[in-house]
Nucleic acid binder design. Structure first.
Lengths: 188, 188
DNA sequence: ATTATGACTGACTAAACAGTCAGCAAATTT
DNA sequence: AAATTTGCTGACTGTTTAGTCAGTCATAAT
C-alpha cells in the first residue's frame, strides 16, 4: 500500500520548493517528482497557490501537534515552557525541510493569503500560557506578544546556528538545553 | 538632476519584490515602475537573478555602513554592543522595505548565490568584537557564532513585534532600549 | 564639422508556464 | 452484465516571461 497521491505531491512539492523556491519550481516538475500525471496536481489542488498554502497549513499543524503532544502534563510553569521550547527545536531538527519551507513561506508575500484570525488562533494557546505565567508572577510582566516573539526568534536563532555548524545530535541537545536556561534568565 | 536609472531600477525592484515576491514580479513591471525601457534593465543587470543579488548586496552594505557609522567611538564594550544593536533596529525601522526584502532573500534559495566567504566577511567584524568581550571577561564564554546569532535573532524578533503593533516611534525606541537590557542580561 | 561612443530603447521571440479537458480504466452500484 | 462513478491521465493551449538586438540619439572627442 503506497502513500496516496495527494501526500506524494505534498512531499515532492516540499522538497522542490526548499531547493528551488516557489516560482522556481514548475508544477510539471512537482508532478514528475511525485510520480503522478501533470493533471493530477490540479485534481487535488485547484491552483499552484492553493498547493503552497495547503502545504504550509499542513506543516504548521503537524508541528503544533508535535509540540503539544510532547509538552503536555508538566508540573510547573517553567517545565511547560521548557518542554515546548525543546519540542519546537527537536521538531525543527528532525524536519529541516519543513522548517525551512515554513520560514521561506513566512517571509514571502504568500503569508498574506493566510487569514489574520487563523494566525491569531494558532498563537493563542501560547499567549494564554504566558499570561498565566505573568499572573503567577513567575515571568516578567511584559506584553505576551513581545515575550512570545522573543522566545520564538530565540529558537529561530538557535536553529540558524545549527544550520551553519555540524554538531552531533547529542551536542545539539546540549546547546538547546543550555540556550533555554539563558532564555529563561531573560524572561524572569 | 534626477537619480540615475540603475538606482531607479533598484528602487522599483525593491518595492515590487516585497509586494509580489521575486518571481511574482516580471522584469517588464520593474522597468515600467522605474520609468525606463524594458531593455534598460538588462543593460545594467545581465539577468534578473543578477539584479536580485545586486539589490541584496547593496542593501546589506548600506545597513552595515549605517550601523558602523552610528556605533563607532563608544567608550566601553557594552556601549559598543548596545549602539550597534540600537542602530540595527533603528535602521530596520526607517527602512522597512529593505529589511523585509533582506529577510525574504535570506530565507530563499537565492542566498546560495552569495559566496560563503562573502557572508563570512560581513559578519567577521561582529565576531571579532564579541571575541574581545569574551577575552575581557565581560560576556559569557560561548562560541561567538552562537552569541552573534542570538543577538541577531533577538533583534529580528523585536522587529517582527513592531510589524504587528502600531507603536509610535518614541514607544518603539523605548521597547528597543528595554529589550537590549534583557538581551544584555542574557549575555553576561 | 565629422566621427565615435555608449547609454538607452522597445518591438520582438523562443521557451516555459499554469491550468484545461476529453476521456480512460478500474472499481462500485444497479 | 450493464451502467455509473471515481480517481486519474497527459496531450494540449493561451498567456506570460526573460532576454535579445538592431537601431536611435545626445554627448564628447578629434
Amino acid at each position: 500500500m503506497q502513500k496516496d497521491k495527494k501526500q506524494l505531491l505534498l512531499d515532492a512539492a516540499l522538497k522542490l520548493f526548499v531547493e528551488y523556491g516557489f516560482h522556481g519550481t514548475p508544477t510539471s516538475l512537482i508532478a514528475k517528482e511525485a510520480g503522478v500525471a501533470n493533471g493530477t496536481l490540479f485534481h487535488y489542488f485547484k491552483t499552484k497557490d492553493e498547493l503552497i498554502v495547503a502545504l504550509y497549513v499542513d506543516i504548521k499543524n503537524r508541528m503544533a501537534a508535535y509540540v503539544f503532544e510532547n509538552a503536555k502534563g508538566q508540573a510547573t510553569f517553567k517545565e511547560t515552557v521548557k518542554e515546548q521550547y525543546l519540542a519546537s527545536l527537536f521538531w525543527a531538527q528532525d524536519n529541516q525541510l519543513q522548517y525551512r519551507f515554513a520560514e521561506q513561506f513566512k517571509n514571502s508575500p504568500y503569508l498574506s493569503q493566510i487569514a489574520p484570525d487563523e494566525i491569531e488562533a494558532s498563537v493563542k494557546p501560547f499567549h494564554d500560557m504566558l499570561r498565566m505565567g505573568i499572573k503567577e508572577g513567575v515571568i516578567k510582566s511584559q506584553p505576551v506578544e513581545l515575550l512570545f516573539t522573543i522566545i520564538s526568534s530565540h529558537a529561530y536563532g538557535i536553529n540558524q546556528y545549527f544550520m551553519s555548524t555540524n554538531f552531533s545530535k547529542a551536542k545539539q541537545h546540549q546547546v538547546i538545553s543550555d540556550s533555554f536556561e539563558m532564555l529563561w534568565a531573560m524572561l524572569t
